[in-house]
Amino acid sequence: MPSLGLPELIIILVIALVVFGPKKLPDIGRALGNSIKEFKKATKEITKDIDGDAQ
């Protein structure tokens, strides 16, 4: 699976800017960051539970 390079990221950012507008973009970025943080926290807890049960 190919990774995203700089040109692809710029295109995605421009499309997001056009769709959501410059005032909504920081809120969307903040919400996305919080979602990623919660997802990582949940996966870490699940991994810890699985490792704890295996012992």
Results as ranks from 00 to 15, higher is better:
1 M>V: 08
1 M>D: 02
1 M>E: 08
1 M>K: 01
1 M>C: 08
2 P>W: 10
2 P>T: 07
2 P>F: 04
2 P>H: 00
2 P>Q: 11
2 P>D: 09
3 S>L: 14
3 S>C: 14
3 S>R: 15
3 S>Q: 14
3 S>N: 14
4 L>W: 03
4 L>D: 05
4 L>H: 02
4 L>A: 09
4 L>R: 06
5 G>C: 01
5 G>L: 05
5 G>T: 10
5 G>V: 02
6 L>V: 15
7 P>N: 05
7 P>A: 03
8 E>N: 06
9 L>K: 00
9 L>N: 01
9 L>T: 02
10 I>W: 11
10 I>L: 15
10 I>S: 12
11 I>R: 15
11 I>N: 13
11 I>P: 05
11 I>A: 15
11 I>G: 15
11 I>H: 14
12 I>R: 10
12 I>F: 00
12 I>G: 07
13 L>F: 07
13 L>K: 04
13 L>H: 12
13 L>C: 00
14 V>Y: 10
15 I>K: 03
16 A>C: 13
16 A>D: 10
17 L>F: 09
18 V>S: 05
18 V>H: 05
18 V>M: 11
18 V>L: 13
18 V>A: 10
19 V>P: 01
19 V>L: 00
20 F>C: 04
20 F>Q: 06
21 G>R: 04
21 G>Y: 01
21 G>H: 06
21 G>A: 07
22 P>F: 03
23 K>I: 02
23 K>W: 01
24 K>N: 13
24 K>A: 13
24 K>R: 15
24 K>D: 13
24 K>T: 12
25 L>V: 13
27 D>I: 02
27 D>G: 14
27 D>L: 09
29 G>A: 09
29 G>N: 14
30 R>M: 12
30 R>G: 13
30 R>T: 14
31 A>K: 13
31 A>R: 11
31 A>S: 12
32 L>Q: 06
32 L>G: 13
32 L>Y: 11
32 L>W: 09
33 G>C: 05
33 G>Q: 09
33 G>V: 02
33 G>R: 00
33 G>N: 07
34 N>W: 12
34 N>C: 10
34 N>V: 05
34 N>Q: 15
36 I>S: 12
36 I>T: 09
36 I>H: 13
37 K>C: 02
39 F>D: 08
39 F>H: 11
40 K>I: 07
40 K>P: 00
40 K>W: 01
40 K>G: 02
40 K>N: 09
41 K>D: 15
41 K>Q: 14
41 K>R: 15
42 A>F: 03
43 T>D: 07
43 T>A: 00
43 T>R: 04
44 K>G: 07
44 K>L: 04
44 K>F: 13
44 K>E: 14
44 K>T: 12
46 I>A: 03
47 T>I: 04
48 K>G: 05
48 K>A: 12
48 K>T: 08
48 K>P: 07
48 K>Y: 05
49 D>P: 06
49 D>L: 08
49 D>C: 09
49 D>S: 13
50 I>E: 01
51 D>N: 15
51 D>G: 09
51 D>K: 15
51 D>Q: 15
52 G>Y: 03
52 G>K: 09
52 G>P: 04
52 G>L: 10
53 D>Q: 02
53 D>R: 11
53 D>A: 13
54 A>I: 01
54 A>H: 02
54 A>R: 03
55 Q>L: 10
